[in-house]
């Protein structure tokens, strides 16, 4: 069955990487990279999330169908965010304000 177990050293390695990335994200947040602040923070968070999904949640070792399910969830989340933001982020181009301009 799919329960061929992941070697322990992989778990400890992922744990260590997650800790290092946490310190990294705090360190980068204390510096100002202008427009890149949020993309940097989200990239580190995305990398941490991917490590958890692939190794702690065994998706790397799962069947293709399970991998497709996992991917589909985040793909739909991306659609939700992209279609919502392409609306709100373009409203001032059309002079349609949802929020009071500031």
């Amino acid at each position: 069955m799919a329960a061929h177990s992941v070697p322990l050293k992989i778990y400890y390695g992922v744990f260590l990487a997650l800790c290092v990335l946490t310190f990294l994200t705090v360190w980068t947040a204390k510096h100002d990279y202008g427009l890149l602040n949020t993309p940097i923070a989200l990239s580190i968070a995305g990398l941490k999330g991917a490590l958890v999904i692939l190794f702690f949640m065994h998706v790397k070792y799962s069947s293709k169908l399970t991998q497709l399910f996992a991917f589909a969830g985040f793909f739909w989340l991306a659609l939700l965010l992209v279609f919502t933001l392409q609306d709100y982020w373009t409203r001032d181009m059309l002079n349609v304000y949802f929020f009071k301009p500031h």
Binding site: T22, V26, K30, D32, N37, A41, L42, A45, V52, I53
Partner: peptide, 22 residues
């Protein structure tokens, strides 16, 4: 449980860190 951990991995920078450089 791991999924709940992932949610926090995103909450932490988005809620705690966006004002840290100021």
């Amino acid at each position: 449980w791991h999924f709940v951990d992932i949610v926090w991995i995103f909450l932490f920078p988005l809620l705690y860190l966006i004002g840290a450089h100021s």
